[in-house]
């Protein structure tokens, strides 16, 4: 197990280093020579050379990268071009909304996905099964911004039961906060609960054909127990592995979802800073997403290995 964990940590670190290096290079390319930026194009070459020497910009790129990485680790993420706010502060202020949105979407994806999957598997090839499979087919193929617009049209503009935009801090009004999160969470989770439902249904149908289910039934175990304990438990392993991949996609979907529902998370911060060319913030948000994606991926792999010994040995 320890060898497995160490190897996974190494993979994760490599991925994070690779992507941050990519961000660093892109930033350098976009911003151009910082010394020329400071002194202007007509500056005296000797002054330029001295300042470059003083600020360390004449060092090789990889040394500058490590230096930059060191400053990030110490919490110095630079300042926004637009506001005097430090980048890290701006991101931390926005992070809770994004985390809540992705967490709730994950909960919806698992609850609704497993629920619908089990329901479809219990009554295979019936109208119920067909309805569920139609719903999940739409769920995977519909772009999430379109789902959002249809949901807003129906639930916010016509039925007026749920708000269409904005967010209230959880500590001020927990119920209001959750109400504002219902439509965004359904939007973001649509593709995932559909995938989870399809996979759960297929795996349960497969399990119900298996020897161990036949044995359990022969022993006289009740059908509900056969389904929920014997078949479902074994079917959830592949579901867990799909969720691992999905979490990273959730971060991408969150950007669009936050923009539509005007949720003040890091996704909207990213889009706003790209549109106003506020590169320090763009860089910061992308780093946070990078670390978030690979960290969650690592945790899911760990969980998967803990549940299924074949992974850590194989």
């Amino acid at each position: 197990m320890w060898v497995f964990v160490l190897r996974r940590i190494a993979t994760m670190l490599f991925a994070i280093l690779f992507l941050t290096a990519l961000i660093f290079v892109l930033m350098q390319a976009v911003l151009g020579d910082p010394v020329v930026l400071m002194l202007g194009r007509d500056a005296d070459p000797a002054t330029v050379a001295r300042l470059r020497q003083d600020l360390g910009f004449n060092r090789p790129t990889h040394v500058q990268y490590l230096d930059w990485l060191g400053r990030l680790l110490q919490g110095d993420w630079g300042r926004s071009f637009r506001t005097p706010q430090p980048v890290l502060e701006a991101i931390i202020a926005r992070l809770p909304v994004t985390l809540e949105l992705t967490f709730l979407s994950l909960v919806v994806a698992v609850a609704l996905g497993v629920g619908l999957g089990v329901l479809a598997a219990v009554r295979p090839y019936t109208r119920l099964d067909f309805g569920i499979s139609l719903l999940t087919a739409f769920g995977t193929a519909m772009p999430n911004f379109w789902i959002a617009i249809l949901l807003i049209l129906v639930f916010a503009l016509h039925l007026r039961v749920l708000p269409s935009s904005g967010s209230i801090p959880f500590v001020e009004d927990p119920l209001g906060n959750l109400r504002a999160m219902v439509l965004p969470a359904i939007t973001l989770s649509a593709a995932y609960f559909s995938n989870v439902a399809r996979l759960t249904r297929a795996k349960i149908l497969e399990a119900l054909e298996s020897e161990y289910v036949r044995t359990a039934r022969a022993k006289g175990v009740r059908e509900a127990r056969v389904l929920l304990v014997h078949a479902l438990r074994n079917s959830l392993l592949p579901v867990l592995s799909v969720l691992g991949v999905s979490i990273s996609r959730l971060f991408g979907g969150a950007v669009v979802t936050e923009t539509i529902f005007a949720l003040p998370g890091i996704g909207i911060l990213l889009v706003d800073s790209i549109l106003s060319r506020d590169f320090p913030v763009v860089q910061g948000v992308i780093i946070v997403i990078t670390v978030g994606v690979f960290l969650t991926n690592f945790l899911v792999e760990l969980a998967y290995a803990a549940v299924d010994p074949r992974i850590r040995i194989g």
Binding site: A15, L26, S248, F251, F279, I286
Partner: peptide, 22 residues
């Protein structure tokens, strides 16, 4: 290939956003 793995895991929309941003 490790680099490819890393890029694959990274959300493609954020990657595309980052590239167009720069």
């Amino acid at each position: 290939m490790r680099a490819m793995d890393a890029l694959l895991v990274f959300p493609s929309l954020v990657l595309a956003l980052a590239i167009t941003a720069f």
